[in-house]
């Protein structure tokens, strides 16, 4: 474990803004991709459901 306190962990030796922005953007991008895919699947299944009826 590298850190002595939570504040130190957040500060990242003064690079906090850059480090946390990078990690945040990465996982935000992946989350958006997953959400878009889920929506697409829902749209298609709804369409197919209507066709079956």
């Amino acid at each position: 474990m590298q850190w002595h306190s939570f504040q130190e962990f957040i500060a990242m030796g003064g690079y906090g803004f850059y480090v946390w922005s990078s990690f945040g953007i990465t996982f935000l991008a992946m989350a958006i991709e997953l959400l878009a895919l889920k929506k697409r699947r829902q749209r298609i299944t709804n369409m197919l459901k209507q066709e079956t009826v």
Binding site: M12, G13, G14, Y15, Y18, V19, S22, F23
Partner: peptide, 8 residues
């Protein structure tokens, strides 16, 4: 060299 900044 880069301290904690390299974690990116």
């Amino acid at each position: 060299q880069q301290g904690e900044g390299y974690r990116i």
